[in-house]
Design a protein around this nucleic acid. Structure first.
Lengths: 343, 343
DNA sequence: CTGTTAGCGCATTCAG
DNA sequence: CTGAATGCGCTAACAG
């Protein structure tokens, strides 16, 4: 690999001039510019990132720590964040915590070691000592979708209360009273907020307040299936199920089918926080409130760059929209009608 | 941020000794070790990655360039690669080409600039000049799932011919003659290999050789839906559809429903290359051949590290397995029976 | 506008 | 086993 020294020698200019041309930092004569650029092209010169970072004490790298890259919500978010960052001259170092606090902490160490210029964080739990140390070092941080106590950073997140409101309205319109709620960990802000909004609003929407209908998993399919089964094993039969995120809805569906069989399960309507591409294919189709993951990713990157470059960054809540697929199938005729207010 | 110099001063040893302790490179006295480690812990010292990389002329970073991070095949692969790399002391820099050659090339530049120690590549097309330059610089490279002409690197890939064989056997057992094939770009090795194996094997499995049943998209849902619609618009009605990767199957389903309606579409069986988590919920359930993305990711990382550390790396083809969901639904009774050999 | 020089933080040499 | 010295490749400060 050729260095800037090689380029300078070949172009017949000094090291400094070559550097100035290649990084465009100061004005240079047209002749120098031409000579240096030609030499660089001939040699296939590519800046040595680590050396440049060492000298400038910045890396132009952003760390992005997501909870679960296999959750389409996060893979879409990551994708949007990455292209926004690239457009603005930054590279994203993506890490996957796999909903695991220990792994998250390990990646924070790597980010710190790589000296990322800023951090996009979707936290797993409370503020760990390592995270506290990063914050103390005044590393710019923004939060994605999940907040955490004692961490005062701009937050780019789904409007959970508004989204749950859409769900409650829909449940009421469809005449559901016996609704199972499969939530996520209440230790995660999204889990807590969605559950709280649901519990607070259900009575006003004519939904049973029997807590036998409520359980929570881990925001992954497997834990959600177990939660769904726990609900059913209490002897209640819901007419609708509300899954608190994408993987949770997947797990809830599996749980329903495992306990009730395909036939009986297909008589239960499902609504999901987070829209997945396959909901239209299930019978009956699954309705959802859609979470604009791409917007969150883009806004997060923009906000983080604002912080890095010394500007203000303001939090934003992203509104959700209802994707009502119940129209496709009409009212569920085989549903037990006891106690239902049919729309 | 404290530097190794601060640690040395605080521990009352020289810079060299602190470095030796912290990187474990040479033997040190127990006392020095204790003092240095204590000082490092007190200061919250974290190695400056760029400086270390500059000095050692290696970064312990692997570049992973995937075609489409929102394709679950790749997000699972990326996840597995990342955790395998972490286990072995490497960090993965993930980039998403979005099935776009230009973007892929841009990321190759970033990888080169960051001086990654090796490259895991799922190529989009032919060898670009930039990729050629990287290869010429003797950067260790392994290929994931897709090969490319003129690039002699270890390949960790699905056994496409074997997978298509499983599909053909299943189609024959189910008595399908009029089978639509929705493929991917033949400019991508997986697209070409899968299509070639299907075309070559169909006659021996009693499947129509009418090429009206064959079309190809772009390995994304939208292009596949268009291809499916082109097939149907030729006036043929298949009894089964074979989608050449996950997003393709999704698109094919959408195309079927758009042209035929839900009812008629549900009388067509679908089989897919790549298994998706929701196939069990579709009616009838979608059968698939499963691609072990995690294995490919792990093997790729292991192979790449072998190359980096001067060992041999041998290519591997990963066998696919049939996930037969037709058992769940039994033979399709409403299917037109003309010309079918019923199993 | 350009050449020279210093030094970012670290690992590694060479003496001792 | 340890300390002192060197330089990885680059940018920025300075003097011209």
């Amino acid at each position: 690999m050729s260095t800037i020294k090689d380029v300078a020698r070949r172009a017949g200019v000094s090291l400094g001039t070559a550097s100035r041309v290649l990084s465009g930092s100061a004005s240079t004569s047209p002749e120098s510019r031409a000579k240096v650029q030609a030499a660089a092209a001939e040699l296939g010169y590519i800046t040595h990132g680590p050396a440049r970072s060492l000298r400038r004490s910045r890396t132009d790298v952003l760390g992005l720590l997501v909870s679960d890259i296999r959750n389409p919500f996060f893979s879409e978010l990551a994708h949007a964040a990455e292209s926004e960052a690239m457009k603005r001259g930054y590279t994203v170092l993506l890490a996957n915590a796999n909903e695991d606090e220990v792994q998250a902490d390990e990646y924070l160490r790597i980010f710190a070691s790589q000296r990322v210029d800023g951090l996009l964080l979707s936290p797993q739990g409370p503020v760990t000592p390592r995270l506290a140390a990063l914050l103390a070092s005044r590393l710019p941080v923004v939060l994605l979708n999940r907040s955490v106590e004692g961490l005062d950073a701009p937050l780019y997140a789904t409007d959970n209360a508004q989204g749950v409101g859409l769900v409650l309205d829909w449940l009421e319109r469809r005449g559901h009273r016996d609704v199972a709620f499969v939530g996520g960990p209440v230790t995660i802000s999204t889990g807590a907020e969605r559950q709280a909004a649901y519990i607070a609003g259900r009575e006003a929407h004519g939904i049973s307040t029997d807590d036998a209908f409520v359980d929570a998993g881990d925001f992954l399919a497997e834990g959600a299936a177990a939660a769904m089964i726990r609900i059913l094993d209490r002897g209640v039969i819901p007419t609708a199920v509300f899954g608190a995120n994408g993987p949770t809805t997947l797990g809830a569906l599996r749980g329903l089918r495992e306990r009730l069989g395909v036939e009986a399960a297909s008589r239960i309507e499902v609504i999901s926080f987070d829209d997945l591409e396959w909901f239209e294919f299930v019978s009956p189709p699954i309705t959802s409130v859609r979470n604009d993951a791409a917007a969150i990713g883009r806004l997060g990157v923009a906000g983080l760059i604002d912080l890095i470059e010394g500007r203000e960054a303001v939090s934003a809540r992203i509104a959700m929209s209802l994707v009502d697929r119940s129209l496709m199938s009409g009212p569920l005729v085989d549903r037990p009608q006891t106690g239902h207010r049919v729309p």
